[in-house]
Design a protein around this nucleic acid. Structure first.
Lengths: 200, 200
DNA sequence: AATTGCGATTGACATTCGTCACCTGCATGG
DNA sequence: CCATGCAGGTGACGAATGTCAATCGCAATT
């Protein structure tokens, strides 16, 4: 019997995934959580074999949750199930000791199989995504990332400068560098590209 | 026996929702589709009682699908299940004759109940959302919408003008109006706000 | 002590953006 | 017929943006 804990913020999807796993005779969904904080409490309480978690959740993200599981020495395997095929996410996930990374685009039958494989000590990662993850490194440094994030939300150079205690010119320089590194034409495209790659 | 057709682009979620509904003794998921086109074919083929559809799907969106169901006189009720609590979406959905609008944030148990209620001839709409939908009308006209969509993807005024066969100045005028109507400071914020409201 | 490297800054420049007032057709309806 | 809109365009102005080269301070080398 594989004891599973589910973390997913959208209640309807959470319930549906739970129903899906309950159909498997060798699976037991011991609990489910709507965010990372709650998931961590339930992990300590139930000691599940496998944690199945989304990435983008309020409070503690799935990636941060995976890190915590590793740091605090919890014994459970972590499998990420997410919408986002972002190389940066996968990379961070693997660095956090995650042993499975599935996309919500993948067929539903694949989930139970993946959990069994992981429970036996295997790894399951979308192969196409794995290639992208190691082929393209994040070219941005911390400052560029910060500046790009804020600029992408519509703040002007001056407003970004005020928030980060930098000068307006410096902000424009960082933005210019980020635009150059990403090979695009303006801050809007830079933000979109970085976001899509999971670098923001 | 309520005969249900499921349209949802994420395979894993589609499978999970299907499992969820199959648990109900009075529900029968007769087929499921990964996009709007496929869903329409399956509706003609299976004549389901209820169509449960997502909104954002490749090709034909859930809203367009609902419109088509109404226009072509298919008898099935339409229930939208989506991530997006956007007033504009709900408004368009209701105009298209949709009788149910649920959020993926809502508890999973609610889905089956909603389908039963709809099947009996009732309506199910998130009450909070219903208020927002009628309080705020979309202030943008078609041109402003088009221009804003393209500008939001990082195109410059000149590039947008080329695509729409307009002059550069006109494009900037439309953008300026959109920015004014939305009460924001630049095209980036305008795009984000319009998108969030479901107006894009 | 001199050198190298790096984060941050400055200033100058051309381009793009956001705003506004004002023009041009063109359909519509009194 | 005229006038009242309305979609689209023009031109001009100031502000914000994107690009570069040069500078400063400071820490880590050597």
């Amino acid at each position: 019997m594989i004891r599973v804990l589910l973390a997913e913020d959208q209640a309807m999807v959470r319930g549906a995934l739970s129903a899906l796993l309950r159909l498997e005779p060798d699976m037991d969904v011991v609990a489910s959580a709507a965010d990372g904080q709650e998931a961590w409490r339930l992990i300590e309480q139930h000691k599940p074999d496998v944690l199945v978690t989304d990435i983008e959740m309020p409070g503690l993200t799935g990636l941060e949750l995976a890190q915590r599981v590793r740091e605090r020495g919890a014994t459970c395997k972590v499998v990420i199930v997410t919408t986002f095929a972002r190389p940066g996410y996968l990379r961070r996930a693997l660095e956090a000791g995650v042993v499975g990374y599935l996309l919500k685009d993948a067929p539903a039958e694949q989930l139970a199989d993946a959990l069994r494989k992981v429970h036996r000590g295997g790894r399951v990662v979308d192969p196409q995504l794995a290639v992208d993850a190691w082929s393209e490194a994040d070219p941005l440094n911390d400052r560029e990332r910060q500046v790009l994030r804020l600029a992408g939300e519509g703040l002007s150079a001056g407003e970004v400068a005020a928030q980060l205690h930098l000068s307006q010119g410096t902000v424009r320089n960082y933005l210019s560098e980020a635009i150059g590194k990403l090979g695009v034409g303006n801050r809007i495209e830079a933000y979109r590209l970085a976001r899509q790659k999971g670098w923001l």
